[in-house]
Design a protein around this nucleic acid. Structure first.
Length: 426
RNA sequence: GGAGAAGUGUCCGAGUGGUCUAUGGUGCAGUCCUGGAAAGACUGUGUAGGGGUGACUCUACCGAGAGUUCGAAUCUCUCCUUCUCCGCCA
């Protein structure tokens, strides 16, 4: 959520920043509503003050047993006016909220202008030396996955619907091994606290991180209980301290968690229909930082490097890109995507997305910290990133580690987790 | 799921329609006292939004929301949470 005070103070600058995302943004309507609402608020407060005075007078009169009809008459009239003003004011506040809550975050100045992922800026590449594997033509990961009998796409569809799948045997073990490896690295080497979280969350949590009110159609909703299946564990992790004031000494906080994630993929019909790239349910290990304004950009570099570390340990080639204004997400001020090399298609595919949301989410969820005793509480900065998506990592392994027509090598770091398995043949 | 009880400030806890600052204690901070400390005394002590250069001041907040009333922590309704008992259950 953008700061309404900043919006009031410097509307032109904020509108210009928003228009870097989309030239259609205008904040005139919000400002007009805000002005009206504040005028009503002032009027209401004056009236309340008058009514409080009259009520005090009334109490004294009643106690003395004197006639209070005239005063009561006046008080009644004031109360009626307050009621009228209040309902008008509430309607305006609701409208203002609705608009402000659906405005995205301002892109950071270091983010390049652009319309789509074509305009993203490549920051660095890693592991390009071993990008070219011996096999000239690498089959797509879904063929290898099925040939190994590690992935059963058809029965996943039978059990649920398309874009659901089943992992079996060493394929299931691979899922578990990746989750364990990632959590182990983040907790023992990068200083994260591990969490096990609710997979269903309420509307307030979804609003806090920015999924609601705008992106409700992307999520599975359990209507009967007013709960949503999480599209990412960013939601329950970041909302952990919602509506709280934390002590500066508790910051920065670093959390990691493995959860399944659920997405309806409403707008992606026909895209990535084969394989593990775009599933309705997938496993992910998430990284979240809750920190201060002073350190959030350093935290973004750290968080990104923590996600990269997993790819380095797995020896998967990747590159890091900085998203342009047209590709960056709703809540983010700046985002680095990490893209893994997929040899069957000869392209890099997103496997992690690391964002600094500044105080955008913290303001929505009223998450604050006190920098020192007696100081006013101020909003935290929150960051999140995948560390990393498990399904897409498996896809990358099933392509980058095919060493001949019938052999898949297991990444060295995974062998202990895979009960010593070094190769799988198909 | 059924029956009952409760939710007040950091915490404990009083308050069942009206005296502007929501009793009292506790915790915390400051001052006094002291050689120093403890004890004691006094003062202050949350959040948000307004107004004023400022000392300050106004408005709202007693789990959440709605209602009754000139006036609600207090009465009514709905919801949430916790506790006790019963039922069901990995």
């Amino acid at each position: 959520m953008l700061d309404i005070k900043a919006l009031r103070q410097d509307p032109h600058a904020i509108e210009k920043a928003l228009q870097r995302r989309n030239p259609d943004f205008s904040i005139d309507a919000v400002l007009a509503i805000d002005e009206k609402r504040r005028a009503l608020l002032q009027e209401e407060e004056v009236l309340r003050n008058q009514r409080n005075a009259l009520n005090k007078e009334l109490a004294t009169l009643k106690k003395a047993g004197e006639n209070a009809d005239a005063v009561m008459e006046t008080a009644k009239a004031i109360s009626e006016r307050i009621k009228a003003i209040e309902s008008e004011k509430d309607a305006l506040a609701e409208e203002q909220d609705r608009i402000v809550m659906s405005l995205p975050n301002l892109p950071h100045e270091s983010v390049k202008d652009g319309n789509s992922e074509e305009d993203n800026e490549e920051i660095r590449r890693w592991g390009c030396d071993f990008k070219a594997r011996p096999l000239a033509e690498v089959p797509p990961h879904w063929e290898t996955g099925v040939a190994l009998n590690w992935i059963d796409f058809e029965r996943g569809v039978k059990l649920a619907k398309s874009r659901f799948s089943v992992f079996r045997g060493n394929g299931a073990l691979l899922v578990r091994s990746l989750i364990r490896l990632m959590l182990d690295v983040h907790t023992t080497q990068h200083g994260y606290e591990e969490l096990v979280l609710p997979l269903l969350v309420n509307e307030a949590s979804m609003t806090g991180t920015g999924q609601l009110p705008k992106f409700g159609e992307d999520m599975y909703k359990v209507a009967e209980d007013d709960l949503y299946l999480i599209p990412t564990s960013e939601v329950p992790i970041t909302n952990l301290y919602r509506d709280e004031i934390v002590e500066a000494s508790q910051l920065p906080m670093q959390f990691t968690a493995h959860t399944p994630c659920f997405r309806r993929e409403a707008g992606s019909a026909g895209r990535d229909t084969r394989g593990l790239i775009r599933q309705h349910q997938f496993d992910k290990v998430e990284l979240v930082h809750i920190t201060t304004a002073e350190s959030s950009f350093d935290a973004l570099e750290a968080l990104t490097s923590h996600a990269e570390r997993i790819l380095q340990i797995l020896e998967l080639p990747y590159r890091v890109v900085s998203l342009c204004t047209g590709d960056i997400g709703f809540s983010a001020a700046k985002t680095y995507d990490i893209e893994v090399w997929m040899p069957s298609q000869g392209v890099y595919r997103e496997i992690s997305s690391c964002s600094n949301t500044l105080d955008f989410q913290a303001r929505r969820m009223n998450l604050r910290y006190r920098s020192a005793e007696g100081e006013k509480p101020q909003f935290c900065h929150t960051l999140n990133g995948s560390g990393i998506a498990v399904g897409r990592t498996i896809a990358a392994i099933l392509e980058n580690y095919v060493i001949d027509a019938h052999t898949l090598r297991i990444p060295k770091a995974l062998v202990p987790y895979m009960n010593g398995l070094e190769h799988a043949t198909f």
